[in-house]
């Protein structure tokens, strides 16, 4: 009984406390870099597209709102032919970013994506691709992967020995 009255009293005391509401949009809230807002595709430090079209973001997506098609350039570098996110379905859970092995897909602190037509929430690669590495500078998947691409021969990746001479039988 006393605890009920105490509760009511403590709640009443909140009358005199400062309100924590941020008056958006006049006042912009602080959003941490790891805030999960609009999704972007980043580029590696050399300016190349980071996405290698591995489909892991698509499969991690609980609402299946990411679709893409892999393709390769003439030197074997894989990239998405198209990359589409249906933001009208996206729940901003960030699983795609967690699944991404190349830091290509990232969520950004931008949530102002309101549209009057749902169709306008379908973003293609042109809308998603930015001109920088985003939150993760420095990482370049192709420098650690074993496949050969234009400008990186076999054995030139990090922690790689020169290609084996298969015709040699020297121990």
């Amino acid at each position: 009984m006393i605890s009920i009255l105490k509760t009511i009293w403590y709640v009443f005391l909140h009358t005199f406390q400062k309100r924590i509401t941020v008056q958006y949009p006049e006042e912009k809230p602080y959003l941490a870099p790891r805030y999960r807002g609009r999704i972007i595709l980043s580029r590696d430090p050399d300016g190349g597209e980071r996405c290698v079209a591995c489909y892991l973001c698509a499969v991690a997506c609980p609402v299946s709102c990411i679709a893409l098609q892999a393709t390769e350039d003439e030197h074997g570098r894989r990239y998405p032919e198209f990359f589409r996110i249906n933001f009208s379905r996206c729940i901003y859970c960030g699983y795609c970013e967690e699944a991404c092995p190349t830091y290509a897909i990232q969520l950004t602190p931008d949530f102002e994506m309101g549209e009057f037509h749902r169709q306008n929430l379908v973003y293609e690669k042109d809308d998603l691709l930015i001109n920088g590495p985003g939150k993760y500078p420095g990482y370049n998947f192709w420098r650690v992967a074993g496949v050969q691409i234009g400008g990186k021969d076999k054995g030139q990746a990090e922690h790689e020995a020169a290609p084996v001479d298969v015709h040699s039988l020297l121990p």
């Binding site: 299946s64 709102c65 990411i66 679709a67 589409r84 249906n86 379905r89 929430l121 379908v122």
Partner: peptide
């Protein structure tokens, strides 16, 4: 059962 992209693959034609 892990089939992906169902809500996006045709979204360029129609978002529904």
């Amino acid at each position: 059962h892990r089939s992906s992209g169902r809500t996006a693959v045709l979204a360029n034609i129609n978002v529904s």
